[in-house]
Protein backbone atom coordinates (compact mmCIF):
# COMPACT_ATOMS: atom_id res chain seq x y z
CA UNK A 1 0.00 0.00 0.00
CA UNK A 2 1.88 3.09 -1.11
CA UNK A 3 1.54 6.67 -0.04
CA UNK A 4 0.29 7.70 -3.49
CA UNK A 5 -2.54 5.17 -3.31
CA UNK A 6 -3.51 6.60 0.08
CA UNK A 7 -3.57 10.08 -1.44
CA UNK A 8 -5.83 8.85 -4.26
CA UNK A 9 -8.17 7.27 -1.70
CA UNK A 10 -8.31 10.48 0.36
CA UNK A 11 -9.05 12.52 -2.71
CA UNK A 12 -12.18 10.48 -3.34
CA UNK A 13 -13.55 11.48 0.08
CA UNK A 14 -15.82 14.52 0.02
CA UNK A 15 -14.26 15.80 3.23
CA UNK A 16 -10.96 16.38 1.45
CA UNK A 17 -12.24 17.16 -2.03
CA UNK A 18 -11.04 20.75 -1.97
CA UNK A 19 -7.69 20.11 -0.28
CA UNK A 20 -4.64 20.40 -2.50
CA UNK A 21 -2.81 17.12 -3.26
CA UNK A 22 0.46 18.05 -1.54
CA UNK A 23 -1.42 18.59 1.71
CA UNK A 24 -3.20 15.30 1.31
CA UNK A 25 0.18 13.68 0.91
CA UNK A 26 1.35 15.28 4.15
CA UNK A 27 -1.83 14.06 5.78
CA UNK A 28 -1.22 10.53 4.52
CA UNK A 29 2.44 10.60 5.53
CA UNK A 30 1.83 11.86 9.05
CA UNK A 31 -1.24 9.79 9.80
CA UNK A 32 -1.16 6.13 10.71
CA UNK A 33 -2.62 3.48 8.46
CA UNK A 34 -4.30 0.89 10.65
CA UNK A 35 -5.94 -2.35 9.60
CA UNK A 36 -8.54 -4.21 11.64
CA UNK A 37 -9.97 -7.69 11.30
CA UNK A 38 -13.69 -8.33 11.23
CA UNK A 39 -15.23 -8.08 14.73
CA UNK A 40 -12.24 -6.18 16.08
CA UNK A 41 -13.08 -3.09 18.13
CA UNK A 42 -11.48 0.20 17.06
CA UNK A 43 -12.36 1.81 20.36
CA UNK A 44 -14.88 1.40 23.13
CA UNK A 45 -17.45 3.78 24.52
CA UNK A 46 -15.85 5.71 27.39
CA UNK A 47 -12.25 5.39 26.12
CA UNK A 48 -10.34 8.66 25.93
CA UNK A 49 -10.68 10.05 22.40
CA UNK A 50 -7.41 10.94 20.72
CA UNK A 51 -7.95 10.44 17.00
CA UNK A 52 -10.30 10.60 14.05
CA UNK A 53 -10.64 7.57 11.77
CA UNK A 54 -11.32 7.62 8.05
CA UNK A 55 -12.41 4.37 6.42
CA UNK A 56 -10.43 3.66 3.27
CA UNK A 57 -12.07 0.30 2.77
CA UNK A 58 -14.49 -1.96 4.65
CA UNK A 59 -17.37 -1.32 7.03
CA UNK A 60 -17.88 -0.71 10.74
CA UNK A 61 -20.82 -0.57 13.13
CA UNK A 62 -21.40 2.20 15.66
CA UNK A 63 -22.74 0.68 18.89
CA UNK A 64 -24.13 2.13 22.09
CA UNK A 65 -23.83 0.33 25.41
CA UNK A 66 -27.24 -0.45 26.85
CA UNK A 67 -28.41 -2.44 29.88
CA UNK A 68 -29.37 -5.44 27.72
CA UNK A 69 -26.45 -5.52 25.30
CA UNK A 70 -25.13 -3.04 22.76
CA UNK A 71 -27.53 -1.30 20.37
CA UNK A 72 -26.41 -0.62 16.82
CA UNK A 73 -27.08 3.00 15.90
CA UNK A 74 -25.30 3.34 12.55
CA UNK A 75 -23.06 1.68 10.00
CA UNK A 76 -20.15 3.55 8.48
CA UNK A 77 -18.84 2.47 5.09
CA UNK A 78 -16.04 3.33 2.71
CA UNK A 79 -14.94 7.03 2.87
CA UNK A 80 -16.96 7.60 6.00
CA UNK A 81 -15.35 9.02 9.12
CA UNK A 82 -16.00 8.85 12.85
CA UNK A 83 -14.41 9.78 16.14
CA UNK A 84 -14.84 13.50 15.50
CA UNK A 85 -17.09 14.23 18.49
CA UNK A 86 -14.60 12.99 21.07
CA UNK A 87 -11.80 15.11 19.71
CA UNK A 88 -13.90 18.19 18.97
CA UNK A 89 -15.59 18.30 22.37
CA UNK A 90 -12.80 16.73 24.44
CA UNK A 91 -15.11 14.07 25.84
CA UNK A 92 -14.61 10.30 26.09
CA UNK A 93 -15.75 8.17 23.16
CA UNK A 94 -19.55 8.46 22.91
CA UNK A 95 -19.96 5.09 21.21
CA UNK A 96 -18.15 1.86 20.43
CA UNK A 97 -16.96 1.22 16.88
CA UNK A 98 -16.49 -2.34 15.70
CA UNK A 99 -15.36 -3.61 12.31
CA UNK A 100 -17.89 -5.82 10.53
CA UNK A 101 -15.59 -6.63 7.59
CA UNK A 102 -11.79 -6.36 7.29
CA UNK A 103 -11.19 -2.66 7.70
CA UNK A 104 -8.56 -0.29 6.29
CA UNK A 105 -8.42 3.03 8.15
CA UNK A 106 -6.37 6.14 8.32
CA UNK A 107 -5.94 7.28 11.90
CA UNK A 108 -5.56 11.06 12.15
CA UNK A 109 -4.34 12.26 15.52
CA UNK A 110 -6.06 15.11 17.34
CA UNK A 111 -3.18 17.56 16.76
CA UNK A 112 -3.02 16.79 13.07
CA UNK A 113 -6.79 17.14 12.79
CA UNK A 114 -6.81 20.63 14.32
CA UNK A 115 -3.95 21.60 12.06
CA UNK A 116 -5.99 20.58 9.04
CA UNK A 117 -9.18 22.28 10.15
CA UNK A 118 -7.45 25.61 10.75
CA UNK A 119 -5.64 25.46 7.40
CA UNK A 120 -8.57 24.29 5.28
CA UNK A 121 -11.98 25.85 6.05
CA UNK A 122 -13.45 23.45 3.47
CA UNK A 123 -12.87 20.59 5.89
CA UNK A 124 -14.75 22.40 8.66
CA UNK A 125 -17.71 22.91 6.35
CA UNK A 126 -17.71 19.23 5.41
CA UNK A 127 -17.61 18.24 9.05
CA UNK A 128 -20.42 20.63 9.86
CA UNK A 129 -22.48 19.12 7.05
CA UNK A 130 -21.82 15.63 8.37
CA UNK A 131 -22.72 16.64 11.93
CA UNK A 132 -25.87 18.37 10.76
CA UNK A 133 -26.91 15.28 8.84
CA UNK A 134 -26.34 13.13 11.90
CA UNK A 135 -28.35 15.55 14.04
CA UNK A 136 -31.17 15.48 11.49
CA UNK A 137 -31.16 11.67 11.55
CA UNK A 138 -31.09 11.61 15.34
CA UNK A 139 -34.01 14.05 15.52
CA UNK A 140 -36.01 11.93 13.09
CA UNK A 141 -35.21 8.78 15.07
CA UNK A 142 -36.25 10.53 18.25
CA UNK A 143 -39.54 11.71 16.69
CA UNK A 144 -40.35 8.19 15.55
CA UNK A 145 -39.45 6.73 18.92
CA UNK A 146 -41.57 9.31 20.73
CA UNK A 147 -44.50 8.63 18.42
CA UNK A 148 -44.17 4.90 19.04
CA UNK A 149 -44.10 5.48 22.78
CA UNK A 150 -47.25 7.62 22.57
CA UNK A 151 -49.05 4.95 20.58
CA UNK A 152 -47.99 2.33 23.14
CA UNK A 153 -49.27 4.57 25.95
Amino acid sequence: MSLNQDVEALRAISLFAKVEPSKLKLLAFTSERLTFKADEELFHQGDPGDALYIILDGEADVLLDAPNGPIKVATVGKHGFFGDIAILCNVPRTATVKATKPLETLRISKDLFYQLVTQFPQISIEIMRELAMRLDKTTRDYREAAAKLKQGA
Binding site: S22, K25, L26, F29
Partner: peptide, 17 residues
Amino acid sequence: IELFADLPPEHEFFAQF
Protein backbone atom coordinates in the same frame (compact mmCIF):
# COMPACT_ATOMS: atom_id res chain seq x y z
CA ILE B 1 10.75 19.12 0.67
CA GLU B 2 7.39 18.67 -1.04
CA LEU B 3 5.77 17.60 2.23
CA PHE B 4 7.39 19.85 4.78
CA ALA B 5 8.73 22.97 3.05
CA ASP B 6 5.49 24.93 3.65
CA LEU B 7 5.39 24.24 7.37
CA PRO B 8 6.72 26.81 9.85
CA PRO B 9 10.23 25.75 10.98
CA GLU B 10 9.20 25.18 14.61
CA HIS B 11 6.40 22.81 13.62
CA GLU B 12 6.44 19.56 15.61
CA PHE B 13 6.11 17.47 12.43
CA PHE B 14 9.76 18.12 11.67
CA ALA B 15 10.83 16.33 14.83
CA GLN B 16 8.16 13.63 14.51
CA PHE B 17 8.12 12.79 10.85
